[in-house]
Write a protein that binds this DNA or RNA. Structure first.
Lengths: 341, 341
DNA sequence: GTAATTTCTTTACGCGCGTAAATTTTTTGT
DNA sequence: ACAAAAAATTTACGCGCGTAAAGAAATTAC
């Protein structure tokens, strides 16, 4: 690295021997300049360690290279994991991702979108809070910014939706449970955070009917995003009152299942699929933590990789101007058999 | 809101009746203008929904209002939780926080800092990867940007360090375990990710000596940040080989403990403090998930609130120019008694 | 009420880069 | 080798705001 400190593109253009507009063009898209020119510029970048001022860059460009990634709750490893995936894909595609979390709070979600707007993002990958989201501010946002909705759909907002096929999820795992033991009861939140839960309940009802079993849904109280605690408290109540009509419980999601497992433990109820176990518990999501519960949780897992790939690709296409009608992509999950069911 | 769309500060200055330089002053610091002026401006903001262009703002200011928050692994709920805390404090103090994760990768950590630099942040709250961090790039970074190190200290880098008192952590919980049963063995990673682990081991050795017990450290293999899996695999090996000389195991951190609990489960070993339990297991960190293990994990918890408060305050003071000699603040943890020990 | 002080206005320039237009140079096709 | 096409250069302006300087206006002090 040379000792002369380059402070702007003008100076850089001088030392690199390439005119400033061409240098500017290069930074906008390295492939847009001739191969030999590109090499000269990159040699100079290497030598002088020059990087253009991103604020000055973004000020004039109508479209920046910024991409916002918004999740409802970053403290949930599921969202952390998918956000990590998306982040990497954005970087690989030459964008500058920025991570945001609504922390379970609708007001914060609105605020985050408000702030995002001022970053003039080329696009946004948004997993909405769901039921609690402020519909009007979401609507206003997606009008102005190319937004791909993932994880949980909100009407036909944005350019497309990419998520998991909740119907497949639940029917698949219900099928498994029915084939390997007593048919499952369904354990869920009474007022779930997002519409995925409704689909899963409906799919459970459908599947049970198809198999000729009597469905039983236990809906527990609880607001907010403390699913484990809701599952634990609700589980205690349901267990104490003997609300489960069979020895098998399918939870609406893994976090609820984790709470339920804790409740079972606290009541001395042995969970598993062995003969000595009293009940079987299964979850849904393939939560990063589900491997380490006791017993390890049988679940049906999101295809993290596929979801993030489809979501990112769809957004990048839209940014590049490939307009397509709104589309919903729902990917299948994979059953993960462990000891809990 | 009026229908006229204000597109820059010039226009806003016209409709608000305040000159542009004064409006600019207001956005730089609302308290720097006269009370009556401030009200006029804020009324106009409300009416016209104007927000200054952040790129243009940041371009000329030598110091922005940006604050970077960098953690080693956002998928770890511990870091997610503390990041959330810090984020909120930054917002409350009028800064614009941006979240970054090194995702356990030293190269990514360096890259994140490189990108952060171009955001000209007023300051950075950095929890380094630790042992794996690239010392030289950290050093270069903290020279240029006011950086507060938290969670895991790296020499005397940055403006200060704020974290937990690992010596107090381990001596406190070791004391508890000794008083309530057999003295603990210490379960850790052979090559831990950060220096906190070394302090904890040392503190364990000190405490055991003080109590007149023979210490026993079991160090398990494993690289990276998959602590649960490392704990599980190492736990299996240690349990099979009967390496634990007492019935009590203190883990270097909660994630390791969670893995160990899974190993115990998989070997049919009952964990708890009751008479029917075979061993006791305790962790350290107060991991958000520790409440929901089976049995719920006895641990010693970081004071998340205090750590984030001290860290944020120290950074804000430094940004405001209060230069103080480098200082290390280590906060005590609180013992959380649960069923596992 | 007057002077001192604070705050605001006017004027003006610059930051670093995007980008458009006209021109020149280089590359490509045949 | 020559014309056509592609890419680079020169020139020039603008983006939205920070900020400095000088003077006018409003507030405060006494």
């Amino acid at each position: 690295m040379a000792e002369t400190q380059i402070k702007n593109m003008e100076e850089f253009s001088a030392v690199s021997g390439i005119s400033r507009p061409t240098v500017s063009k290069y930074f906008n898209d390295p492939d847009s300049v001739r191969h030999t020119t590109r090499e000269k510029i990159e040699a100079a970048i290497e030598k002088y360690d020059y990087r253009p001022n991103i604020f000055a860059m973004n000020q004039n460009r109508k479209m920046t290279k910024n991409v916002g990634i918004v999740v409802p709750l970053l403290a949930d490893p599921y969202f952390a994991e998918i956000a990590r995936n998306l982040e990497q894909r954005c970087i690989d595609a030459g964008y500058r991702p920025t991570l945001f979390s609504a922390h379970g709070d609708p007001a914060l979600e609105t605020e985050v979108l408000e702030n995002l707007r001022s970053m003039k993002p080329a696009g946004v990958l948004l997993a909405p809070l769901g039921r609690a989201s402020d519909r009007r501010s979401l609507e206003k946002f997606v009008e102005d910014v190319p937004t791909l909705i993932f994880d949980s759909s909100v009407e036909e907002f944005g350019i497309a939706f990419v998520g998991s096929d909740n119907f497949q999820f639940t029917s698949h795992i219900t099928d498994y449970l029915c084939r390997t033991g007593e048919p499952p009861c369904f354990f869920e939140m009474k007022t779930p955070a997002n519409p995925n839960a409704h689909r899963r309940r409906q799919s459970y009802l459908n599947a049970m009917e198809a198999f000729g079993h009597e469905p039983q849904v236990i809906s527990v109280d609880g607001e907010g995003w403390s699913f484990e605690e809701i599952g634990r408290l609700g589980g205690h109540e349901a267990l104490s009152n003997k609300q489960f009509s069979t020895n098998t419980i399918l939870c609406s999601n893994d976090r609820l299942a984790i709470g339920l497992l804790t409740a079972c433990y606290e009541q001395g109820i042995k969970v598993g699929r062995g003969p000595e176990a009293a009940i079987r518990v299964a979850g849904q999501d393939g939560h990063p933590h589900s491997r380490y519960t006791c017993p390890p949780l049988t679940t049906i897992s999101h295809d993290y990789d596929a979801v993030s790939m489809h979501a990112a690709e769809a957004l990048f296409l839209a940014i590049d101007g490939h307009v397509e009608p709104w589309k919903s992509t729902r990917l299948e999950g994979k059953l993960i058999l462990r000891d809990s069911a």
